[in-house]
Amino acid sequence: MLRVRDVATHFRVHPATVYRWIHQGFLPAYRNGQPFKAGDGATGVLRIPESVLKSTAPAQAPKEAA
């Protein structure tokens, strides 16, 4: 299981972006060994399965024209 920071580094985004992807359902996450459900009021550290790095590619922002 990976930390949010590790996933953010891998995809070269800010950790807040990873949290947004989790809350939008784009990335699976676990809290205290249970699947994360937004708004359940539970506290604890979020972890993301390592398989996400291999199977999920975030939408790339279009590059600016030179």
Rank of each mutant, 00 (worst) to 15 (best):
R5P: 01
D6L: 02
V7P: 01
V7Q: 01
V7L: 03
A8P: 02
A8E: 07
T9M: 08
T9V: 06
H10C: 03
F11N: 05
F11S: 06
F11I: 04
R12W: 00
V13D: 05
V13T: 08
V13H: 05
H14A: 09
H14S: 12
H14P: 05
H14N: 13
P15D: 05
T17V: 10
T17L: 07
V18T: 06
Y19W: 04
Y19R: 03
R20N: 10
W21Q: 02
W21P: 02
I22L: 04
H23T: 02
H23E: 08
Q24W: 09
G25K: 15
G25P: 09
G25L: 11
F26I: 15
L27E: 03
L27M: 10
L27N: 06
A29I: 04
Y30W: 10
R31W: 00
R31N: 03
R31I: 08
R31G: 01
R31P: 02
N32F: 00
N32P: 08
G33S: 12
Q34V: 13
P35Q: 09
P35E: 08
P35T: 06
F36I: 03
K37W: 00
A38V: 12
G39R: 00
G39P: 01
D40E: 01
G41S: 07
G41H: 05
A42G: 11
A42R: 15
T43I: 10
T43C: 07
T43E: 04
T43Y: 00
G44D: 11
V45R: 14
V45G: 05
L46E: 08
R47Q: 13
I48N: 02
P49V: 11
E50D: 14
E50Q: 15
E50N: 09
V52C: 04
L53V: 07
L53G: 10
K54F: 00
S55A: 14
S55W: 00
S55Q: 11
S55L: 14
T56H: 11
A57H: 13
A57D: 14
P58N: 09
P58M: 08
P58Y: 06
A59P: 02
A59S: 12
Q60I: 08
A61S: 12
A61K: 14
P62Y: 03
P62S: 12
K63W: 01
K63A: 14
E64V: 14
A66S: 13
